[in-house]
Write a protein that binds this DNA or RNA. Structure first.
Lengths: 149, 149
DNA sequence: AACGATTATATCGTACACGATACAAAATTA
DNA sequence: TAATTTTGTATCGTGTACGATATAATCGTT
């Protein structure tokens, strides 16, 4: 590849990654609209449903988001009645985020989301099972390498 | 997989895609900071360097971004003197975006960016060439499927 | 116990993303 | 040609992302 061709859009790895991420998030849009939540809010709910109450930093560690993103996001979710934020008694610096009954109940409505996403993915493209497995493995390698340190 | 496990974070495809995209963009941060541009602005420059002057819609078609994102982004780039926006004479609805001399010259400074990105990618993880090729192919399938219609 | 370093969260400013809407210019159709 | 539809941009509002900074609480060390 000539030196200049390194700058061609089709030779970038970053762009299709960026585009695929945005398009995938957009695919969740209508589904999550039914639940009145956004995609990042859905991710927060996923970790709370799976693991129970967590501190802001713990959520950030799992989702690779910092508090400057999470604090306002969690406040919006608290205002909507999905969760409760409370200062920890053992460590007054820490804020414990726990699901409200409403937030807990929302899990039932969310159970159909992954199935519909899988269906949508299969609709347009024809990714084989092996391809998806390899793709996910590479993604995890990349995230592992870049998120570390 | 049990029904409920579909909601576990580690079983999502969307999350590592979202995380990898953000982390990759973050990797560009320090490099592009040298050029005083952001990652989306870099993408706009890539298509203009490669193809010359384009309309807003043409840029949007290549980058899969709508005008509600591009118009303010292009205005910021115009204010920084990287490009010029002008109404087309043939079609007064269309705005032609062309590089300024400054924007054109910036290409020379950008030539080292892709090399450094590749180096950073290799630093942490050990992606084989075949793995990168397969990964890129899957990304293009996904983008093609979701961007169509 | 005092004090500097670390940790957990929050705030601020800027720049995307994107759904919804607006509007004028061009194309289409009646 | 007048009316309708489509197209190309722009605007508005909301919600992330994220670098930089602030602040209070805890920890570690002396």
């Amino acid at each position: 590849m000539k030196h200049e061709e390194l700058l061609y859009l089709e030779n970038q790895l970053c762009f299709p990654l960026y585009a695929a991420s945005r398009l995938t998030t957009q695919m969740y849009g209508p589904l999550l609209h039914e639940l009145d939540i956004t995609y990042p809010q859905y991710l927060v709910l996923l970790v709370l449903w799976q693991r129970g109450a967590l501190s802001v930093t713990e959520i950030g560690g799992l989702l690779l988001l910092d508090t400057n993103t999470l604090t306002p996001l969690l406040k919006r979710m608290e205002e909507k009645g999905l969760l409760v934020r409370s200062r920890s008694k053992e460590d007054a610096r820490s804020v414990l985020v726990s699901l409200s009954p409403t937030g807990q109940q929302l899990k039932e409505k969310a159970l159909c989301v992954p199935m519909q996403v899988i269906a949508n993915f299969q609709a347009g493209g024809t990714l084989t099972h092996e391809e998806v497995v390899a793709f996910k493995a590479t993604l995890h390698k990349i995230v592992g390498a870049l998120a570390a340190e």
